[in-house]
Design a protein around this nucleic acid. Structure first.
Length: 475
RNA sequence: GGGUCUGUGGGGUAGCUUGGUCCAUCCUUCGGGGUUCGGGACUCCGAGACGCCAGUUCAAAUCUGGCCAGACCCA
């Protein structure tokens, strides 16, 4: 087996192979864009779900689950929304041989499934805010080339939907969601930028959309999440109203927050290297793999030591696997490296006798541990690994942005670009054409790099009321 | 949406133009044996595929049609 393709030169080839060798999905399922989750990949996904659940519930949201099928009549109530999704929904038109009176849509997202029910649930201002989320599969008839975790037709989707009393409360919920996402991203050691998407690229039906993007090498970016402020755009057609203190009916202000297994793809894409996947310990299916080194004459001492150590680590909630298969040690090292295991522990016969081990983390740092407080040292090594991974990620992140002052500079961008923009759609499209990508949007909060005050618009040269905007090439 | 092309064991391929020693080949994968074992071992035995359905033919991986799946290019 050779090394993976060069990540910076052939990113997509590298990505596909990294996912393949790690065994996260089986792409042989005979429907385009629908892959099988393997036990290893599913475990990573479940851990990722756990991060989302923990984060969102800490911010006062509760889990619900709505049905998969949506009647066409409900689906069509918000005009922009239908227009945005019409081309990519799967339809259910028959029950057995009987044509359905009202065709059903396989949800591409759940606004139109939830909101008729929200209208029933919400009567009074006392019913607000309503903060609920669900983690379910949604379906989109993707026509472009599909890629595991990144562009798929059956999406494992996290969606929070909230109803708020006021516009300001909804904006506050959006900010709260960004803080929640920050926590999730931190756990994954993924730096990101939040930008307000330009008008022409916001979610169909939204008042505004804040997208969460990751730079993944060159000018490439990966959108891993969105927070939308809907204002009353949905509550009016779906008649979600409450009676306020004065006894008047008011429409609720709504928000949504969406994430998916793209975050898993992003973790692979961002941290991975020539040997394959690199997992942060938060979602690593195995945080520690122990490889006992056995030779013909040494007997079971190394395996016994490995198993005893594994039991002790498990009792401290470490996910650990003892690889006592018949493979040679070298083959095991490569295998577990490609699968992204944060920490490998080697135990040879002599070490077993002495109560020591050799620890090698996924960043290649190697050291001997023990005999004193061995278990603590291993936990410490795991924590150190996560810190080192995050530090490495921050460095890569800093290098992923640069300022461009002229449209011609955009063509050969080797980073995501920060450009000054007048805010008009015409100039926005000029920028998109020049970079052969997209205007991501105006950053929310601090910029990844400090470019000073905005200059004149990179496209039309207008000097007043310009702002910095990020442009890149979304995957 | 329009066009071009592709489909051969688990993965990657040759063969197809001109139908016939092709129970197809190489690299791997899987099962079993032996020698090994601190960075991708060697060796022996064995298993496993011509996308699906029709048609043409003495004979189809190869030709024809339909279907399914996928890739690339353009709008």
């Amino acid at each position: 087996m050779a090394e993976l393709p060069d990540k910076s030169e052939h990113f997509i080839d590298w990505y596909l192979e990294a996912v393949e060798v790690a065994g996260l999905t089986d792409k042989r399922y005979p429907v385009k864009g629908m892959n099988v989750w393997t036990p290893y990949g599913f475990q990573a996904r479940r851990l990722l779900d756990g991060l989302m659940i923990q984060g969102i519930e800490a911010s006062g949201s509760r889990a619900v689950e709505f049905p998969t099928l949506i009647p066409q009549t409900e689906f069509q109530k918000e005009k922009e929304h239908v227009k945005g999704f019409d081309a990519e929904v799967f339809w259910v038109t028959r029950g057995g041989a009987t044509p359905l009176d009202i065709p059903l849509v396989l949800r591409p997202t759940s606004e139109t499934a939830m909101y008729p029910i929200f209208a029933i649930w919400i009567r009074s201002h006392k019913d607000l805010p309503l903060n609920v989320y669900q983690i379910v599969n949604v379906f989109r008839y993707e026509t472009k080339t599909t890629r595991p975790f990144l562009r798929i037709r059956e999406v494992h989707f996290f969606e929070e939907h909230t109803c708020q009393l006021t516009d300001e409360a909804a904006a506050a919920r959006c900010r709260s969601n960004l803080a929640t996402f920050q926590g999730i991203a931190d756990a994954l050691a993924l730096p990101f930028v939040a930008t307000r998407r330009p008008e022409w690229d916001k979610f169909p039906g939204a008042y505004y959309s804040i997208a969460l993007d990751l730079p993944v090498g060159g000018a490439r970016t990966l959108q891993v999440g969105t927070v939308h402020h809907y204002r009353e755009n949905f509550s009016r057609p779906y008649e979600i109203r409450y009676e306020d203190l004065r006894g008047e009916m008011q429409y609720v202000h709504q928000t949504t927050f969406g994430l998916s297994e793209r975050l898993l793809g992003a973790t692979v894409a961002f941290h991975g290297d020539r040997r394959g996947v690199v997992f942060p310990s938060s979602i690593a299916p195995y945080q520690v793999v122990i490889v006992p080194i056995v030779s013909q004459n040494s007997g079971p001492i190394a395996v016994d030591a490995a198993r005893a150590l594994a039991d002790r680590l498990r009792s401290r909630n470490v996910r650990v696997y003892v690889d006592d298969s018949e493979e040679r040690p070298g083959a095991k090292y490569y295998l577990w490296e490609s699968r992204g295991v944060p920490l490998r522990i080697e135990v040879g016969p002599r070490e077993a006798a002495a109560g020591t081990v050799t620890a090698v983390n996924r960043l290649g740092e190697k050291k001997g541990l023990g005999p004193g407080s061995l278990d603590d040292s291993i936990l410490q090594a795991l924590a150190d690994y996560d810190k080192a991974l995050a530090a490495r990620a921050r460095v890569a992140f800093q290098k992923s942005f640069s300022v461009a002052y002229r449209l011609e500079e955009l063509k050969d961008s080797s980073t995501v670009r920060l450009v000054s923009w007048c805010g008009t759609e015409a100039c926005g499209h000029q920028i998109e054409q020049a970079i052969e990508g997209a205007v991501l949007g105006v950053p929310e909060g601090p910029l990844p790099i400090d470019p000073g005050a905005p200059a004149e618009c990179i496209s039309c040269g207008k000097a007043h009321e310009t702002r910095w905007v990020l442009a890149g090439r979304p995957l």
